[in-house]
């Protein structure tokens, strides 16, 4: 067991607002885990807790890697990136006034990634040829789909082992959502990544997920061990499949 992310009994919020309550989950090496839920249920907060952008008020976020255990709740964001966790943030959050290539270079800001910058840049351009064509273009002037590609490529520039993707479908047309999800699945295989993906598009997310959690009002409502189990769940039927629970 080389890599494992575990979140246990996590509370987090913004001032008086509680966004997460008693959330526990686990991601093991090589898995693609989906966190499903509609807007405002705490998916993004959970992603931010794992990456050090939001401090939990209670509970633990632990990364076990190569026999060592790291308490992520106590580390600054840059140290978490250094451990091999990369986030593709919600809404892409590119550097709009920098070029595509400058965006990619910034993905490799952490020291250990700088030495592999040439190799990773080549990988990124190979995976996303459109980025190579547009490498001198300002990121903010590209289409939504291309920006999403760039956001994913930028995250890969840090040679992550655990890739977190927050709502890749936001602001994209159905066709592009489908393409983006497929791309994430392909990259996962190609780079041997472990993926934790927050998504509200149930049908798209389960295409590449091994298993998933459903988060409702900041609490884990369903923890399913397989996609089949998710599909069979009553809450899922009620929320996503138009069934009557």
């Amino acid at each position: 067991m080389a890599l494992r992310l575990s979140v246990s009994d996590l509370d987090a919020g913004y001032g008086a607002v509680k966004a997460l309550q008693g959330v526990s989950l686990e991601v093991r090496q090589g898995e693609t885990v989906a966190i499903l839920g509609s807007n405002g249920n705490g998916k993004s907060t959970l992603m931010k807790c794992v990456t050090g952008l939001v401090r939990p008020t209670r509970g633990r976020v632990t990364l076990e890697a190569d026999g060592k255990s790291h308490d992520l709740a106590a580390l600054p964001a840059e140290a978490i990136v250094e451990l091999g966790i990369a986030l593709v943030p919600e809404g892409r959050r590119l550097f709009p006034k920098l070029t595509v290539e400058e965006n990619l270079m910034l993905g490799a800001f952490r020291k250990s990634a700088r030495s592999e910058i040439g190799k990773n840049l080549a990988f990124a351009y190979e995976a996303f040829p459109v980025l190579k064509e547009r490498r001198r273009q300002l990121a903010g002037t590209m289409s939504g789909g291309q920006q999403q590609m760039l956001a994913i490529a930028r995250a890969l520039m840090s040679s992550p082992r655990l890739l977190l993707v927050d709502e890749p479908s936001v602001g994209l047309s159905p066709l592009l959502v489908s393409q983006t999800i497929t791309t994430i699945g392909d990259l996962k295989k190609k780079f041997g990544l472990t993926v934790l993906m927050a998504e509200q598009n149930f049908h798209q997310a389960v295409r590449i997920a091994d298993r998933g959690y459903i988060i409702v009002h900041g609490e884990i409502a369903v923890a399913a061990q397989s996609v089949a189990e998710l599909n069979a769940n009553d809450i899922v039927k009620k929320l996503y499949l138009g069934g009557i629970a």
């Binding site: 952008l53 990136v81 943030p89 590119l94 550097f95 990634a113």
Partner: peptide, 14 residues
Amino acid sequence: DDELAAECTGVPTL
């Protein structure tokens, strides 16, 4: 350009 994005990519902003 974007402070949150910078933190995400591991830039030690502070």
